[in-house]
């Protein structure tokens, strides 16, 4: 039996069924949490951001535009919340000319990575400007389409493609300098 669409839970919640919102949280919290985690590289901040996003979604549920998918709306809030978090803390805002690419970044308070390679790839992401980092996360880790990313990032689809191409280029350069991609030149 197929699972109910998000819209059904949203309608139930708008009619006062709080547990219906719990179903939405259960369904989407993992995705939101991972977006926040990859943006901030902090397990604790990812929890805080996830909680803030769902509270905001609950408070603004009546204004949710049903023309767009619920998860896109949630992702938009998650990305904005994570961007604000990064800029507020001024950590890992992006490429820092004072740092060598081989700089070892501080270990997070909770080591959530499976292995050394994933830890290194996450570190490479942190050397990217935060807007480009978001694009890589949404496209390659969350599997969003160009159209969905355009809605989430609130930029035209053409700009999504252009910046994504640049983001891939930046990521390649960082990985090359850290020795994770071979350069046969």
């Amino acid at each position: 039996m197929p699972e109910p669409d998000d819209e059904i839970f949203i309608q139930q919640c708008l009619q006062g069924d709080r547990e219906a919102f719990g179903m939405l949280v259960s369904r989407h919290q993992r995705s939101v949490f991972n977006v926040a985690l990859r943006m901030t590289k902090s397990y604790q901040e990812a929890q805080d951001i996830t909680q803030a996003v769902f509270i905001k979604a609950y408070e603004n549920l009546a204004s949710y535009d049903t023309r767009f998918k619920f998860f896109s709306w949630i992702y938009r809030m998650a990305v904005n919340e994570a961007l604000n978090n990064v800029k507020r803390s001024r950590r890992f805002e992006g490429l820092d000319p004072e740092h060598d690419y081989h700089t070892v970044l501080p270990t997070p308070e909770i080591d959530f990575e499976e292995n050394e390679m994933s830890r290194n790839i996450q570190n490479a992401l942190m050397f990217m400007k935060v807007d480009y980092r978001a694009l890589i996360i949404l496209k390659h880790l969350q599997g969003l389409s160009y159209e969905e990313i355009a809605y989430v990032m609130e930029i035209p689809e053409k700009t999504v493609k252009s910046r994504l191409f640049t983001a891939r280029q930046m990521l390649k350069e960082v990985l090359l300098k850290r020795g994770y991609v071979e350069n046969d030149r």
Partner: peptide
């Protein structure tokens, strides 16, 4: 470079 991103597995909240 993009293939390496597959090393980043989803983390359980």
């Amino acid at each position: 470079a993009t293939a390496l991103l597959q090393e980043l597995k989803p983390v359980e909240p």
